[in-house]
């Protein structure tokens, strides 16, 4: 059995797509949008797979693409249009829970570095050292981002659910 370029890509997709979806969902809070962003990121990865396959961490490149797409509303609309025009619809997905809506809304208010650090830490179980490496920051800086991000999120969630929820 010979492993072809497509086989290698498919294996990479299977190994990483679930994690990338978590990340995209964490940034967007919308399952349909996460589907689109993940598909778009892998489509771009396939376009440059020869080069990407030689990277030490091609998954980090995918997260970078998702970051960029998720932070640009017009790109997101473009991605969705492109998918709707060219592909069979994916199965419908349910709406996010109330907690997810609140969390993602609060995440969006955070500076980008804090948001990415929190997503990597809470959704992908990355260590501080890993996050520092991926974001090109010192470990102390990452700890500071995580701490400040947590504080801001907790306060925001408390405000959103005041009287109903207590967030530590």
């Amino acid at each position: 059995m010979t492993e072809t370029r497509a086989d290698a890509f498919d294996a990479f997709y299977r190994d990483t797509s679930r994690r990338l979806t978590r990340y995209a969902y964490g940034l967007t809070g919308d399952a349909g949008e996460a589907q689109d962003l993940v598909q778009e990121a892998y489509a771009r990865a396939w376009q440059r797979w020869r080069r990407l396959a030689a990277y030490d961490d091609p998954e980090a490149w995918l997260r970078l693409v998702v970051n960029r797409l998720s932070s640009d509303r017009w790109r997101r609309i473009g991605v969705r249009r492109a998918r709707e025009a060219a592909a069979a619809p994916l199965p419908p997905v349910g709406p996010p829970s109330e907690n997810t809506v609140l969390l993602v809304r609060a995440m969006r208010e955070l500076p980008a570095d804090q948001r990415r650090a929190l997503a990597l830490h809470y959704l992908l179980d990355r260590s501080v050292a890993d996050i520092a490496r991926e974001l090109g920051a010192a470990e102390g800086t990452v700890k500071s981002w995580l701490s400040r991000g947590r504080t801001t999120l907790a306060a925001a969630l408390l405000t959103d659910r005041e009287g109903v929820r207590n967030v530590r």
């Binding site: 497509a6 890509f9 498919d10 997709y13 299977r14 797509s17 679930r18 979806t21 978590r22 995209a24 969902y25 964490g26 809070g29 399952a31 996460a34 589907q35 993940v38 598909q39 778009e40 892998y42 489509a43 771009r44 990865a45 396939w46 376009q47 492109a82 998918r83 060219a86 592909a87 069979a88 994916l90 199965p91 997905v93 349910g94 996010p96 829970s97 907690n99 997810t100 969390l103 993602v104 809470y122 959704l123």
Partner: peptide, 23 residues
């Protein structure tokens, strides 16, 4: 949030390749 994300249906890797090729 992680639990919800893990239930998001994904297309096949072949679909991603096709989309990349179309791009």
């Amino acid at each position: 949030l992680r639990g919800e994300a893990d239930t998001v249906p994904l297309a096949s890797p072949a679909a991603a390749r096709r989309r990349g090729t179309r791009r």
